[in-house]
Amino acid sequence: MSESVGVGEAGGSPVLDGYRHMYSGKVRDLYVPIGDDGVEADDRLLLVASNRLSAYDWMMSPEIPDKGEVLTRLSLWWFDQLADLVPNHVVSTDVPDAVAGRAVVVRRLEMLKVEAIARAYLTGGGLEEYERGGSVSGVVLPEGLVDGSRLPSPVFTPTTKAPVGEHDLPMAPDEVEAELGADVAAEVSRLTRAILARGNEIAGERGILIADTKVEFGVAPDGSGGLVLADEVLTPDSSRFWPAELWEPGHPQPSFDKQFVREWLTSAESGWSRSSGEAPPELPAHVVEQTRAKYVEAYERLTGETF
């Protein structure tokens, strides 16, 4: 498999010998391996992390250098830390040279149609919902919480899984049960909160608070086995990372994640309005460079490795 090489680009996704491009999401591209006999594998996929970055459901331009490799290497590290909690989809890191470092071979799964989100600290959309009614996704929270407040325990706050370009919408507990069934919904909630709690145990020792995170689960196509953790886990794309030494509830926190890009987009410097319906402007070089630096710093602080 590792002898395959890139022979061009198709729609921003690499063309790979021995693979058929299957799907492109906001950040990742999926390929089906093709054997020497021309038969497509029905149990495996190649998952490639691009350098694309999305914010407010818009794809940003230009891309962030090395982002795909940071996400892939960090996810692999976290899969190891979480192995006793939940199985993951990784089969092999033997991938084509053209995507080396930012791709993995994974099990083919039926993905659940719910974005599994857990929050350990109150901010962003969770804060907005709390300020409207004192609860988040049906979970009543204590009075007096502010931006950045630590929650008594991680809260499950799922959303719909919208197509690219559309907005994910909050899901109430009964909607999740209707989509997944009561038993699976309960297990998704338990595992999502457990992953965030474990993440904060480990990250806290390294000076990082994980405010919230999004994870994805799938099941084997034949229905055998339980839930499998897929896609990415506890990365700067799927989570809010805050430097613990600067944590101060009452205002937005500094971050190691793409919140930095969101804040630039809503600043006077960008001149862009979320309500305009127009595409955001190109990211200036200093924002691209600082975003890359933040992703790399998060990776190095968490893993203890030099990128």
Rank of each mutant, 00 (worst) to 15 (best):
S135C: 10
M1R: 14
Y31H: 01
F79H: 12
V140Y: 07
F256I: 01
D183R: 13
G68R: 00
L302M: 07
T213W: 14
R20H: 13
M22L: 15
V7H: 04
P284W: 08
D147T: 02
L53P: 05
D237H: 12
D80V: 11
D237R: 06
L16F: 03
G18N: 05
M1P: 10
T213E: 11
P154I: 06
L85N: 10
G101W: 02
G101T: 06
G38S: 12
Y31S: 04
P163Q: 02
E40V: 12
V155W: 02
R44G: 02
Y130E: 08
V215H: 09
E289R: 14
H286Y: 15
V233K: 05
G133K: 14
A55G: 04
I117G: 05
T235R: 03
V288H: 05
V287I: 15
A185T: 10
W77Q: 13
G35S: 14
L145D: 04
D84T: 15
G8D: 09
A83G: 08
G218Y: 12
E269L: 10
E177D: 13
Q81G: 13
G148W: 00
K214Y: 04
V7N: 11
V48P: 06
Q290M: 13
G68W: 02
L112W: 10
P254R: 00
P87E: 10
P243F: 00
A178I: 03
Y23S: 12
L74N: 06
R107T: 04
D37K: 01
R262C: 06
V184A: 11
E187A: 01
A230E: 03
M59C: 04
G165M: 09
M59V: 12
G134A: 08
S2A: 15
A178R: 14
Y130A: 05
V233R: 00
V140F: 03
S4T: 09
V176G: 00
P281K: 03
G138D: 02
T303A: 01
L151S: 03
R44D: 01
S24M: 11
L229P: 02
V140E: 14
G165Q: 08
P249C: 12
D168M: 12
D29T: 09
P87Y: 08
G8E: 10
A55R: 03
